[in-house]
Design a protein around this nucleic acid. Sequence first.
DNA 1: GAGTGGTCTAGACCACTCC
DNA 2: GAGTGGTCTAGACCACTCG
Lengths: 243, 243
Amino acid sequence: MGTTQLETVPEPKYWHLKTVLAEALDSEFAVGQILPNERELAARYGVARATLRQALEQLEFEGRLQRRRGVGTTVAPPRVGVDVAPVEDSWPGAPGDAWQTDGCEEVSPPARVARLLDASTTEPVSAVRRTRRAHGQTVATELLYVPCAATPGISGSGAARGHAALRALHHLELEGQERSVELGSARADDARQLDRLPGAPVLVVTTRYLSGGATMAVAVSTYRADTCRLTFGDTGAVELLAS
Amino acid sequence: MGTTQLETVPEPKYWHLKTVLAEALDSEFAVGQILPNERELAARYGVARATLRQALEQLEFEGRLQRRRGVGTTVAPPRVGVDVAPVEDSWPGAPGDAWQTDGCEEVSPPARVARLLDASTTEPVSAVRRTRRAHGQTVATELLYVPCAATPGISGSGAARGHAALRALHHLELEGQERSVELGSARADDARQLDRLPGAPVLVVTTRYLSGGATMAVAVSTYRADTCRLTFGDTGAVELLAS
DNA sequence: GAGTGGTCTAGACCACTCC
DNA sequence: GAGTGGTCTAGACCACTCG
């Protein structure tokens, strides 16, 4: 007995559904518009709610949708371009950088940071909490680690200590930065500040600031992956083009 | 009647489970080791399999686990650092770059690429397919778009055409690059090449190559987000430090 | 063919937002 | 209090890998 279908391609339902929804978003919905609720969408497409949610999750990861509990699912605007290194070759907290200092306390650095600082986890560091806002929303949180040994005379806590730690860095000559980007999921405290649920996808940018052949500071910045596109302004001609 | 618990913090089960598992990974498992299967883990922790899977998914996004159908769940090695711009300020395909040219065909550029090229979607471009390998696995796929108008005399298809298109670029003076990174989910074809399932999280790097005040090429590179940490080698002193 | 992770269902209840 | 998305369950079947 022969079968009519050759080379069956069992595409998962949620994957197909995602494609269908993506097309609907392009043609039938405007940015900011609210979609029908999940129970109705599931019924309309004849799938279980869990399956529909799997499709919506994909679209959310791609920055096409935004879901808010108690409110609904809306069509997301295009991702915001956020320049990761707006001021070329400068210390954090230099005039013109996009961050706001929220606080600072003395802690033992997490293992990964200690490794980047070429220090042990027992050596105390100042951990400066900063946030970055753009287009009316908090797009990133940051923990900036500065060894206490490099900033003599620093004490106390709060934003004042944070500013002092940053000022201390500015007296040094910045020789270079080293940066990496990876996928992460938001810890509970970061999630709260970013107005997301814990576990939301984030882009983690780790920056190492070098001076005198050593690492003088390490910044771990956590950007909302759903709304942000990280940009890296680069060599000369770019600004020419932009102007 | 009084209750013993003050300030109930209804932490989701999967979130708590994720934390517990993460600690177990640190203390009881070695890299590459295979975990008990999902049904057993779910039973062991007294949750439904779906809930356990939600926790595992989080850990996979953080690069801690690797799951393969038909095989099992293994403890992932630390993420591989992949330099996004290994050769500073050079065209793609220059000697020493990390990519392999797989093929090339003439297409109409997708809308987003056309916009970056300051061109219309009807103007034909060469789409060069490239892949990048590191540590024995394919870590990225790329589509590099070069306007046919900028590379006169190019024709045919396949790797030969790709090499020709790249060579044509090398005759121009590169004035700058502009780069962005964002989260995406793997399309079916990319997923196959990256040995992942469709929808797997990826980091999408878009690079604009500038020459003569115009955009002469656009590369859209898709990196595995689970195994890769993108690094951006930077200003001078870094190499000094590495040596 | 046995065992794994991946998909899907139908239903319940919870946390949150807004009226 | 009504309506939304978020969590969780118990179970079924499928696609894949490997011996």
